[in-house]
Amino acid sequence: MLSQLQKKLLNDFQQDFPLSPAPYADIAKTLGVSEQEVLSALQELKQLDFISRIGPVFPPNSLGNSMLVAMSVPEEQLQTVAEIINQFQEVNHNYHRENRFNLWFVLIGNNQNHLHAVISEIESETGFPAMRLPMIANYFINLGFELDWND
């Protein structure tokens, strides 16, 4: 399983990954290990898919616009409809959820007009109405997520 070093790397660098010439060496110094150990540990975490990436996080709507959309689709048609929706490059992710509205997806694009046009296209291709849920306010200040290792 994960080493102590890997756990620390996962937990402690969700906020302030160093913006310095040799960031992995700086992390190594903080943790009292070598740069190579940090690089190897991170390499393994990435390979195992425990880390999705190391890099900048952009707040919603800082670079483009996003829109949450929900649809109510009969279960037997869900897979087909999801495949149609997923073909649109604006669709960033798509989840099946247990509800009358069982398909939930997020679109990202240039501006709201473009997103509305794509959603209309999705509606006509799938034959199901889309419930549009744009963000009115964002209340979350993301400081990372406290990981719990007790299991």
């Binding site: 990954f17 880390i51 996080v57």
Partner: peptide, 29 residues
């Protein structure tokens, strides 16, 4: 590299970049 760091710092200060992080895959964890 200095220019990359300077510009990323600036983008972070202005909220274009929210944070720089090793992003855990919560599902996998």
């Amino acid at each position: 590299a200095q220019e990359v760091i300077r510009r990323m710092t600036c983008m972070q200060e202005h909220g274009i970049i929210r944070r720089i992080a090793a992003i855990p895959n919560h599902y996998r964890l």
